[in-house]
């Protein structure tokens, strides 16, 4: 029978996998929007937040968690379409600064709308009994069934995106658009429709991610932005527009962040003593993924998983 340290490590590794899957679901859409439309979408985190709020709200009203997730996906996708069609499509060819300005404006608006609709203290989501239990994994190790389901959902989404991008006609256009969108337009493809589709897909994935995250972290105002910033780190490591790179980078970040938070204090107190550890560990464990990003950029400015040009 494995000792408790090994069991703890296994449990934290599963948590890391779950966090990585959540990150991937957010980053996939964001990196595609970056890569194909060349649009800096700071408001992508707001889609995540709306997914969480809508799921918590619908589940609270109807008592049906599964319905809540579906409604969250549909509504965040609709919100994505609305933002794209009314405003953001005018910004694809504009300077990045204009894009920053307009999506920063959207963040202000969407955070306030969420506060007006659901209150400043946020909403929590109670899981249905069927999901709200632990399953025995190894002797001495029970693991939350819901987090398992989360990981499985992440794998399903990954396979879905892989098939969509590699095996279908739409995926072919997406890949072509990521490498040269003017050429795709020149070949007579209705690029506007493709852009709207990609934007809506990204919004729906962020919404799904938020809806699934709501039972774990509960929906709060501004919850999207810290996640958005981590998604940027994933994109920097994985390469803009590179979904496969985003997948591996998301898993890497998930592991480093989760394991860093569980083991940083112990490592520092082993190296430098308990008092140093108490002062430094809370700061350092949060900084770890950003330090990793900085180190990677010093060695490889083009990112860890970026495709070589040419």
């Amino acid at each position: 029978m494995p000792d408790t340290a090994t069991l703890l490590f296994l449990e934290q590794s599963l948590n890391a996998l779950q966090f990585g899957m959540m990150l991937f679901m957010i980053t996939a859409g964001l990196t595609l929007v970056f890569g194909i439309m060349d649009l800096v979408n700071l408001a992508h985190g707001s889609q995540f937040m709306f997914g969480a709020f809508i799921a918590a709200w619908v589940a609270g009203e109807t008592g049906n968690f599964y319905l809540a997730v579906v409604v969250a996906i549909v509504l965040t996708m609709a919100l994505g379409f609305l933002m794209e069609v009314t405003v953001l499509r005018h910004f694809y060819k504009r300077h990045h600064l204009d894009q920053v300005l307009v999506t920063f404006g959207f963040i202000l608006i969407l955070n306030e709308v969420a506060r007006a609709l659901w209150g400043a203290q946020g909403l929590s989501l109670a899981l249905p009994d069927a999901l709200n239990r632990s399953v025995p994994l190894l002797p001495g190790l029970d693991y939350s069934l819901y987090r398992f389901v989360f990981i499985v959902c992440g794998i399903v989404v990954s396979v879905f995106l892989y098939v969509l991008i590699v095996k279908t006609r739409i995926g072919m256009l997406i890949r072509a658009g990521a490498s040269d969108r003017d050429m795709v337009r020149g070949l007579g493809v209705n690029i506007g429709l493709l852009f709207t589709f990609v934007f809506g897909l990204g919004a729906a994935l962020a919404g799904l991610s938020g809806a699934l995250a709501a039972p774990i972290m509960s929906a709060t105002i501004g919850m999207g932005e810290p996640i958005l910033i981590i998604a940027f780190v994933v994109i920097v490591l994985g390469g803009v527009g590179n979904v496969k790179g985003a997948f591996w980078a998301a898993l890497l970040i998930g592991f480093i962040d989760t394991l860093g938070r569980s083991y940083m204090a112990a490592i520092i107190s082993f190296l430098a003593g308990d008092s140093v550890s108490a002062a430094l560990a809370p700061s350092l464990s949060g900084m770890l993924i950003y330090l990793l990003m900085a180190c990677v950029l010093v060695v490889r400015p083009e990112g860890l998983f970026a495709r070589r040009a040419g």
């Binding site: 970056f34 060349d38 990045h96 700061s283 350092l284 950003y290 990003m293 950029l297 400015p301």
Partner: peptide
């Protein structure tokens, strides 16, 4: 050393790093 969109994302990420350091 990076270009365009990367500069924006990296300054954002490093800014968050200092923010988290202050929070911690």
């Amino acid at each position: 050393r990076t270009k365009g969109i990367y500069f924006l994302m990296i300054t954002l990420a490093i800014g968050q790093m200092f923010y988290l350091a202050a929070v911690g």
